Amino acid sequence: MVATTASTGALPPDLFDTTTLVSLAATLVLLGAGYAASRQFLPKDAKNSARVLFVWHAFDALIHLILEASYLYHCFFSWIPASSVTAEDLGSSQFYMPQPSPFLGHADRIYGPQAGAIHGNALAKLWMVYARADHRWAGPDLVVISLELLTVFIAAPMAIWICYDLSMRRSRANVLMLIVATGELYGGFMTFCPEWLVLSENLDCSNFMYKWVYIVFFNTLWVWLPLYAMYVAISEISDAFAVRDALAKVKKSN
């Protein structure tokens, strides 16, 4: 659940600008890459559930390693002097969230995609599009950074490992999927629970695109697909235990 900001009834003039359209297209390209990889590496007789999970984890890894890794990069390495930003700037769409002071020991700097975008970086501009809906992603929010460090350096490699195991028909994929799905669900909760506790002050839900596409759709992908992965993995593991128990009964009867 998200709190909506007051709506003026007018749509933002930059709702479908070039950067926004390119950003949405980039997401579709990554999804297409995941599907193409499934066609290349999965056995042709793979179950539909295996194909869905392969595509999901490939897409998941690409999102983490390309987009979310770029967010971390800008949080740590892109900055501008705080003295160059006025109070009026901080209320504009160019700057949403200055970092806690002193971030990385520098009270005189502003870090994050909001700084990278000024330098013209394309991925920083992409994050500034998303930051229109969730302002925390413009700057180095400490909760978001902490979660993304785990996501980029642990969850993403594990998602690639899952794709490999699925392509090799290795049952280990089910255990790894449970681990990754649990982490994704916990990460999603820790991303939004702090916002709920402050009445979603950093979320802008004043129009359909911000609320239902950026915040609800893109974030609940990391709820429904991990839940599906857990369902499949638990079913497979339960079946394996059932076979083991059946064999144990046969041995006892003999």
Rank of each mutant, 00 (worst) to 15 (best):
Y130D: 11
Y130Q: 11
R132W: 01
A133G: 00
D134V: 04
D134P: 06
D134C: 02
D134M: 01
H135Y: 02
R136M: 00
R136Q: 08
R136H: 08
R136A: 04
W137H: 13
W137G: 11
A138C: 07
A138I: 02
G139N: 12
G139M: 13
P140N: 00
P140V: 00
P140R: 05
P140Q: 01
P140K: 02
D141T: 01
D141S: 06
D141G: 04
V143H: 05
V143W: 05
V144Y: 12
I145P: 02
I145Q: 08
I145T: 00
I145Y: 00
I145H: 00
S146R: 06
L147W: 12
L147D: 12
L149M: 14
L149C: 15
L149R: 10
L149P: 11
L150Q: 14
L150K: 08
L150I: 12
T151D: 15
T151I: 10
T151K: 14
V152T: 12
V152H: 10
V152I: 10
I154S: 14
I154H: 09
A155I: 05
A155P: 01
A155H: 13
A156H: 07
A156S: 09
A156M: 04
A156Y: 12
P157Q: 01
P157E: 08
M158S: 05
M158P: 03
A159T: 04
A159C: 14
A159V: 02
A159L: 04
A159S: 15
I160C: 15
W161K: 13
W161L: 09
W161E: 07
W161P: 00
I162D: 08
C163L: 07
C163S: 09
C163Y: 09
C163K: 11
Y164I: 09
Y164V: 11
Y164H: 13
Y164W: 14
Y164N: 13
D165P: 00
D165K: 14
L166R: 08
L166D: 08
L166S: 10
L166Q: 14
S167Y: 02
S167W: 02
S167Q: 05
S167C: 02
S167N: 04
S167T: 06
S167F: 05
M168C: 10
M168Y: 05
R170P: 01
R170Y: 00
R170S: 09
S171C: 01
S171P: 01
S171F: 03
R172T: 09
A173Q: 13
A173C: 14
A173N: 10
A173M: 03
N174S: 08
N174K: 02
N174V: 00
N174T: 01
V175G: 08
V175M: 06
V175W: 09
V175H: 12
L176V: 02
L176W: 07
L176N: 06
M177C: 03
M177F: 05
M177I: 07
M177Y: 06
M177Q: 14
M177V: 05
M177W: 08
L178K: 05
L178V: 07
L178P: 03
I179D: 06
I179Q: 09
I179A: 15
I179H: 07
V180E: 03
V180A: 07
T182E: 00
E184S: 11
E184I: 07
L185S: 10
L185K: 13
Y186P: 00
Y186A: 14
G187L: 13
G188T: 05
G188R: 02
G188L: 12
F189K: 03
F189S: 07
M190C: 10
M190A: 07
T191S: 13
